[in-house]
Amino acid sequence: MSSPLSRDEVAKVAKLARLRITDAELEQFTEQLGQILEHANDMTSLNLAEVEPTGHPFGLINVMREDEVRPSLDRDAVLSQAPDAFEGRFGVPRIMGEAP
């Protein structure tokens, strides 16, 4: 049975998800994800054009809080958990390209 998705698509997805996968994993994921999507055919083949997608199951709306300041975290405590910190900020390797 041919997989509903190709190795190229799986490789593209890995890049989007910021995961590196080996050739063996690429093979394996293509097959396994294919199986799961095959199983989903029972669902994808249904005509549900008129059905609304579900949000909160009990239909809560307008959940908001007052605009009141609450204490922030202690900076040293926050930065003590960081892999790299410098001058009160989080350090990262060079960024290639601007934010999208």
């Binding site: 605009d67 300041v69 609450r70 922030s72 926050v78 001058e87």
Partner: peptide, 20 residues
Amino acid sequence: ATKMFCGCANSFGSEPNTNV
């Protein structure tokens, strides 16, 4: 006065990572 989804102060020019 505060951020969109939490109670941290929405203010410009604070010391880095103090309104988090």
